[in-house]
C-alpha cells in the first residue's frame, strides 16, 4: 500500500477553533501538529493545523467546527480544498 504523503493545512477563524480541533484530533489519535499559519496562505498571525494522512477522517471529527480554509500541499504547490466561503471542493 502506498503511503499517503499529502499534507493538509487547516485554517480557522479563531485560536479557539484551532484548539477545539486540536482537542478532537488528539482524542482520536490523528497525526497532526500546530504550526504558525504559512504566510503564503494567509496574513493571519496565529496558528493552524498541519495534518498528515487522511483528511476525510479529520473533516468528520471536526464537522461541528467551522473551518475557514483548507489547503492540500503535495510537496510542490498548494491546492485549495475549502475556500473562505466554506465550500468544500
Amino acid at each position: 500500500m502506498q503511503e499517503n504523503k499529502n499534507i493538509y493545512y487547516l485554517l480557522f477563524h479563531t485560536i479557539h477553533d484551532v484548539l477545539k480541533t486540536e482537542k478532537l484530533l488528539k482524542a482520536h489519535g490523528c497525526n497532526f501538529e500546530l504550526v504558525p499559519v504559512p504566510r503564503n496562505l494567509s496574513s493571519d498571525c496565529g496558528s493552524c493545523i498541519k495534518l498528515k494522512g487522511n483528511i476525510e477522517d479529520v473533516l468528520e471529527q471536526a464537522n461541528k467546527i467551522e473551518i475557514d480554509r483548507c489547503f492540500l500541499f503535495d510537496g510542490k504547490s498548494y491546492t485549495t480544498l475549502i475556500a473562505p466561503s466554506g465550500h468544500i471542493s
Binding site: 479563531t14 485560536i15 484548539l19 482537542k23 500546530l34 504558525p36 499559519v37 496565529g46 496558528s47
Partner: peptide, 18 residues
C-alpha cells in the same frame, strides 16, 4: 500573549484560556 503568534508560549497561553 495568547493567540497572537504561532510560537509555543503564545499557543500555551491560548490553551490556558481555551
Amino acid at each position: 500573549n495568547p493567540g497572537r503568534s504561532g510560537h509555543t508560549l503564545s499557543v500555551d497561553a491560548a490553551r490556558i484560556i481555551f
